[in-house]
Amino acid sequence: MRITVSRNARALLASLLVLSLVAACGGNESQPNVAQVRVGAPTGPNAAVYFMARGYDEDDVLVSASTDVAGSVEFHETTTNDDGTMTMQPLPSFSLPAGGELILEPGGRHLMLIGVDDLKVGDTIDVTLTWQNAGEMTVEAVVVDPADTMGDG
C-alpha cells in the first residue's frame, strides 16, 4: 500500500518536524541551558561542581543550589593575587546575562559542596539550581577524577 500525502500536508509535516527538532535541541528561550555539569571526586570534606550555563532572553541570577549528597552548597570564586598566591572567596550569587554565559571551572567560580558524601568516579548526583527568574531546575552532575575537571581529557 502506498500512502499519498498532499503537498500542503507535506509542508505541514515538514514544519512540525523542524519545530520538534528545535524543541529537542533545547531551543527553549525561557530558562538557562546548563551543560557539562561535573563534580571532582572528593579528596576531603568538600568537593567542587563545575558547569557551563548559556543565557536566554533575559538576565538571570543563580541564587542558590542544593544536593542530597552534601550538607550545604556555597558559591565560591578562586582568584589569583598579585604575588601569584591563590585565594578563595565566597560570593552571594552568580549572574547569567541575557544571551551570555556563566562558566564554572577549576581556578575560577565553582559551587562548593560542604560536607560531601563519599562519591566515586562515574557516579552521578542531582544538583538543584535555583534561578531568580527561571526558578528551580535539577541537573545531573557526573563525578570525575579531579584531573579531568579541567575538561582536558
Binding site: 571532582g40 572528593p42 579528596t43 576531603g44 568537593a47 567542587a48 577549576p106 584531573a147
Partner: peptide, 9 residues
C-alpha cells in the same frame, strides 16, 4: 585539605 578546587587537580 579543605581546598577542593585547585589542590586536587
Amino acid at each position: 585539605l579543605e581546598c577542593p578546587d585547585i589542590c586536587p587537580v
